[in-house]
Amino acid sequence: MDLELRPGTPQDYDEILRLDSLAFGEHFTQQDAADAFDGIPPTFTVATVAGQLVGVTGHYDFTMTVPGGALPVPGVTWVSVSPLHRRRGVLRALMDRQVRDFAAAGVPAAILTASEGGIYGRFGYGPASSTRRTVIDRRLTKLAQSGQKAGGEVRVLTAEQARPVLPELHRRWREQVPGALNRNESWWDHLFLDREQHRGGLSAKFYLAHPEGYLSYRVKDNWNDGIPALLCRITDYVIGSDEAHAALWQVLLGMDLFQTIESEQIPVDDPLPFLVDDFRQVRTTAVNDGLWVRPVDAAATLAARTYPVEIEAVIEVADPLLGDQRLALTGGPDGASCQPTDRPAQVSFGLAGLGSAYLGGHRLHTLARAGALRCDDPRLLTRLALAFSTDRAPFHGTSF
């Protein structure tokens, strides 16, 4: 097979849509194509055989919040291979080429969200955060302090009213949350398109806004022979303060026609179970991987964040594609430095293991037990685990 790789061009868009349609079992309209490529066009790399496009990968440019700072990262997306060319090294060639291009551009790390859990670990990506599906029986759930004046500052907004308000609330929220991604103006325009064919049979979005946060949701009718049992599905959940959290939930839990509230946007460390009168009613029905991280320049990635305790360690990072690195990391609450060194390694990370540890979403002791890292000094491992910990669970919040 004479495989060739090259940058994608607008002339490839029809074939890219065809591949994505075959991979994900979805037919795209001309409106879908215009929304995707005219609004927020990705940067593509394509694979061809005898001039025929047989594989593609792309990326969007994001800024990702990390503890104490931010990191420019490409978000890998649109990954597809023709069903007639599977198991022939097409995906490997595309992913390796993409990472080499990232390295040449000086990118510190790359991110993605995965359609399947077994694909991207072999390319150095490690699952760094978690998402969950939360289901709440609204009829049986209320805030424990029901008399509090929580909902007074909440406004109901139309889409037109929400468009100029939400971006600033989101910016302030994402600066608090490791793993959270920025949304540029084109991204916001895309989100507010709210095309009917992408609603899954539910309503257009409703918006509740507080001065320090907001949420959007859709509703599905279900009158159950005259008994109201509507479904509320939260689609965006941006909570910037405890006050906003209580206020927004007091309004939402007061919607008498709703039977069930569900979402995949409520972070795993959200305090809601501890604020309602029945802890069990905030049910987690599934937990899945969220953001995956691949260090490209491990030194730059480690130096970009702060650490809650002072740490000094020599870390070896195994990268079969770009080359192994041995790095002296010195960091603390005020910043960090990370430089190549010849000193003996005290901690050894697999590349995906470092990606999983980076945002604080997984305990280092757990990763060590799985073989994703090795440290022979238990005291150093404990210190390093504290250094990589965060006070908020990482959550990316923006699907791509």
Rank of each mutant, 00 (worst) to 15 (best):
D2T: 13
I16K: 07
D20I: 03
L22G: 08
A23Q: 14
G25S: 03
D35Y: 09
D35M: 13
D38R: 12
T45I: 14
V49F: 06
V49Y: 09
Q52L: 05
V54E: 10
V56L: 01
H59V: 12
T65Y: 06
P67M: 04
G68C: 12
G68R: 07
P72L: 03
T77M: 03
V81S: 06
L84T: 11
H85I: 08
V90C: 05
A93T: 15
M95Q: 13
R100F: 00
R100H: 00
F102M: 15
A103N: 08
V107W: 07
P108N: 04
A109N: 04
A109F: 12
G117K: 02
G117I: 06
I119P: 11
G121S: 01
G121C: 01
Y125V: 02
S130P: 00
S130F: 05
R133C: 00
V135A: 06
I136R: 04
Q145C: 02
G147L: 05
Q148H: 06
K149M: 03
A150T: 04
G152F: 01
E153M: 14
V154Q: 08
L157C: 11
T158P: 01
A159L: 13
E160L: 15
Q161M: 09
R172N: 07
V177G: 03
R183I: 08
D189V: 01
D189F: 02
H190R: 10
L191E: 03
L191A: 07
D194T: 06
R195N: 05
G200W: 10
G201M: 13
G201T: 13
L202Q: 15
Y207W: 15
L208N: 03
A209H: 05
H210V: 13
L215I: 11
S216A: 08
V219Y: 02
K220E: 08
L231D: 13
C232N: 01
V238C: 09
I239A: 11
G240F: 00
A244F: 14
V251K: 10
G254F: 11
S263W: 02
E264A: 09
I266S: 02
P271W: 11
L275I: 01
V276H: 03
F279C: 06
R280E: 06
V282S: 11
V282E: 07
V287L: 11
V287A: 09
P295H: 03
D297M: 15
L302A: 08
A304P: 10
T306C: 15
E312C: 05
A313S: 15
V314K: 09
E316D: 09
E316Q: 15
E316S: 14
L327H: 08
L329C: 12
G332H: 06
C338E: 07
Q339E: 13
S348N: 01
F349V: 02
A352W: 04
S356T: 07
G360L: 12
G360F: 04
H362C: 07
H362Q: 06
L364K: 10
H365S: 12
C375R: 09
D377A: 12
P378W: 08
R383F: 01
L386M: 08
S389R: 02
T390M: 03
S399F: 05
